[in-house]
Amino acid sequence: MKLWFIAALLLLTSCVAITATTDFPLVNLQLEQKTIQVQLAATPELRAKGLMFQQAADPGMLLLYAEPQHISLWMRNTSMPLDVAFIDTDWRIHHIRQLEPYDETSVPSEIAVIAALEMPRGWFAANQLAAGAQLTLLDH
Score class of each variant (00 low, 15 high):
residue 1 M to A: 15
residue 1 M to C: 08
residue 2 K to F: 09
residue 4 W to P: 00
residue 4 W to N: 06
residue 5 F to G: 00
residue 7 A to E: 09
residue 8 A to H: 06
residue 8 A to V: 15
residue 9 L to A: 15
residue 9 L to I: 12
residue 11 L to T: 08
residue 15 C to F: 15
residue 16 V to M: 13
residue 16 V to L: 15
residue 16 V to I: 10
residue 18 I to V: 14
residue 19 T to M: 14
residue 20 A to H: 04
residue 20 A to S: 14
residue 21 T to F: 03
residue 22 T to W: 14
residue 26 L to V: 09
residue 26 L to T: 08
residue 26 L to F: 01
residue 29 L to Q: 03
residue 30 Q to L: 13
residue 31 L to R: 06
residue 32 E to P: 03
residue 35 T to E: 13
residue 35 T to K: 13
residue 36 I to H: 03
residue 36 I to D: 08
residue 36 I to G: 01
residue 38 V to C: 05
residue 39 Q to P: 00
residue 43 T to G: 10
residue 45 E to L: 14
residue 50 G to W: 08
residue 50 G to D: 02
residue 51 L to Q: 04
residue 52 M to Y: 00
residue 52 M to H: 05
residue 53 F to E: 10
residue 55 Q to I: 00
residue 55 Q to H: 12
residue 56 A to Q: 10
residue 57 A to Q: 07
residue 57 A to C: 00
residue 58 D to E: 13
residue 59 P to I: 11
residue 60 G to K: 03
residue 60 G to T: 01
residue 61 M to F: 04
residue 62 L to W: 01
residue 66 A to E: 12
residue 69 Q to S: 11
residue 69 Q to K: 12
residue 70 H to F: 07
residue 70 H to R: 15
residue 70 H to E: 14
residue 71 I to E: 04
residue 73 L to M: 14
residue 73 L to R: 05
residue 75 M to T: 08
residue 75 M to I: 06
residue 79 S to K: 10
residue 79 S to A: 15
residue 81 P to G: 11
residue 85 A to V: 05
residue 85 A to S: 12
residue 88 D to N: 15
residue 90 D to F: 08
residue 90 D to S: 14
residue 91 W to Y: 13
residue 93 I to Q: 06
residue 95 H to L: 09
residue 95 H to W: 02
residue 98 Q to V: 02
residue 99 L to N: 04
residue 99 L to G: 07
residue 99 L to V: 09
residue 101 P to G: 09
residue 102 Y to C: 03
residue 102 Y to R: 06
residue 102 Y to F: 15
residue 103 D to H: 11
residue 103 D to L: 12
residue 104 E to A: 08
residue 104 E to C: 03
residue 104 E to G: 12
residue 106 S to K: 13
residue 107 V to Q: 07
residue 111 I to K: 15
residue 111 I to E: 14
residue 112 A to Y: 02
residue 115 A to H: 04
residue 117 L to V: 04
residue 118 E to G: 07
residue 119 M to D: 02
residue 119 M to S: 04
residue 122 G to K: 04
residue 123 W to D: 00
residue 123 W to I: 10
residue 124 F to P: 03
residue 125 A to T: 12
residue 125 A to Y: 02
residue 128 Q to L: 08
residue 129 L to I: 11
residue 131 A to V: 00
residue 131 A to C: 01
residue 132 G to T: 05
residue 133 A to D: 02
residue 133 A to H: 04
residue 134 Q to E: 11
residue 135 L to Y: 01
residue 138 L to K: 04
residue 140 H to W: 12
